[in-house]
């Protein structure tokens, strides 16, 4: 049973990033963990967030276009010939 005096589900989901970042103070951390012990919905929410982070981490950002790279390398060559 959910302890209605403590953190409710709607409040908990707003603390998930703070929890994962280790940014909760001791009191909030205790309330957070106590809530999870008896709440399947929030346990699943946290699990989904972790899954989201894991999947996001498997993506790669788009690569540099060769045009941009050529321009920059040319700029670098010009810079290399800079006045000492």
């Amino acid at each position: 049973m959910i302890d209605v005096e403590a953190l409710n589900c709607q409040e908990l989901v707003e603390l998930v990033t703070d929890f994962l970042e280790g940014a909760l103070d001791e009191r909030d951390l205790r309330a957070f963990e106590r809530h999870l012990e008896h709440c399947d919905g929030c346990t699943e929410y946290l699990e989904q967030l972790r899954t989201t982070i894991r999947l996001t981490g498997s993506l790669t950002l788009d690569d540099l276009s060769t045009d941009a790279e050529t321009t920059l390398l040319q700029a670098f060559r010009d810079w290399r010939r800079r006045d000492p």
């Binding site: 209605v4 589900c9 699943e44 929410y45």
Partner: peptide, 8 residues
């Protein structure tokens, strides 16, 4: 369950 999951 005020603020509890309605659609978990």
């Amino acid at each position: 369950h005020p603020g509890g999951w309605a659609v978990p």
